[in-house]
């Protein structure tokens, strides 16, 4: 039996495996929408989780070079937050070497991409990325209590 948020039965977990196929990340966002809606997140919080999930999936699709061509997603619902774990068993990447993009440097530069990790970190409340030659795991959490980050990255928390 599934319990509503606020009952004692949390955490709940939903697992999803998606193939590395163009645009299939949209299917994952539909699960995110349902899960976050179940947890009574507001519209903006739901959209932020969906956008972050899209970026995490795209990152895996484009950079993992996974032989099995799959991405594993887990939604872990707890009283206080939703954690989404995106995992691939690809080649991994050097997390420390990823440069933070800025818009000025993109003008006049043929490479205008490289925003994904920054967006994930900005849209979620906490993010950890671990990567090795055995694969990559992005663990990202959205608090049920509204928490937003201002442009300087400082958090503002309200309890609406």
């Amino acid at each position: 039996m599934i319990n509503r948020p606020g009952t004692a039965e949390f955490p709940h977990e939903i697992s999803l495996t998606i193939p590395i196929v163009p645009n299939i990340e949209v299917a994952a966002t539909q699960t995110a929408e349902a899960v976050a809606g179940f947890m009574e997140f507001d519209r903006e919080q739901i959209d932020e989780v969906k956008h972050a999930l899209i970026e995490a999936c795209i990152n895996a699709f484009e950079h993992s070079n996974s032989n099995e061509n799959k991405v594993y997603i887990r939604f872990i619902m707890k009283h206080e937050d939703l954690t989404v774990i995106i995992q691939d068993f690809g080649q991994g990447f050097d997390v420390e070497s990823v440069e933070k993009p800025n818009i000025e440097s993109k003008f006049g530069n043929s490479y205008k991409r490289g925003w994904g990790l920054m967006l994930i970190e900005s849209l979620m409340d906490s993010v950890t990325i671990t990567s090795s030659p055995a694969g990559t795991v992005i663990t990202m959490t959205k608090l049920r209590v509204r928490s937003s980050k201002n442009e300087n990255g400082a958090k503002e928390v309200s309890s609406d």
């Binding site: 956008h51 899209i54 205008k112 991409r113 925003w115």
Partner: peptide, 9 residues
């Protein structure tokens, strides 16, 4: 209602 960073680029 949905965009990704490649589209925004």
């Amino acid at each position: 209602t949905v965009v990704n960073s490649i589209g925004i680029s």
